[in-house]
Amino acid sequence: MSDAVAILDGVTYRTSGRLLYDDLNVTIPRGKVTAIVGPSGVGKTTLLRLLGGLILPNHGEVRIFGENINTCKASVLSDLRLKMGLLFQQGALFSDMSVFENVAFQLRELTRLPDTMIHDLVVLKLESVGLRGASDLMVSELSGGMARRVALARTLMLDPSLMLYDEPFTGQDPINKAVLLRLIKTLNEALGMTSVLVSHDIKETFEIADYVYVLVGGRIVASGTAKEVSEKQQPVVQQFLRGQADGPAAFKYPARPIEEELGIE
């Protein structure tokens, strides 16, 4: 894919002595919704952190908009981040600020816009996630789902070209889920945004993804369109898509035999 917004090229990453990825290659095409799916603990969130430059790989390169973020200057990385947004799993809202101030944060810190304009822009963003009425609430007064939507409004404030979503559907009720799905798809189509979606909600993710990577055991085991991936006959892909405990992807953490642990002859 020549028109790629982000590329992970031969990335190896270790955390707490554990090898999370070994020679991982992922390409994020421009203007598409790319989904990365895989079992829990496989390192999907870590992959988004690598793309955001929050952590650096042990080996390999992470290139965003053509810049190698391992070697670029801090000021270049900071400018790159203005072109991307990361929706954190728990929202990561600033707990000492109201909903309004959270959404207005970038405008207050990075621009010199007058208060009236900031007010109007924040109201419009909050309206787009259905939380205009909650602008005066403090973060502690929000439910988990609401916090995620406020965080989305905050992340979208400067209309980033690349959006990284970390489990956006977890903890959302069916109505919010449907609205979020439409919103992600609309943002991509209307604003020409590129999205990377990390999730294990297969049904919702496959509905909007243009391209899917299946990450298991630190490697990409399958990739393609949602239809292509669904039709793959690899046991590990089928096990994950059908939610089966037994198969090549380990459900149980390695342990000695239960008979031995319970002292049964």
Binding site: F94, F105, Q106, A151
Partner: peptide, 8 residues
């Protein structure tokens, strides 16, 4: 981390 990602 969120603050870093917001360019601040």
């Amino acid at each position: 981390s969120a603050m870093r990602m917001l360019g601040v």
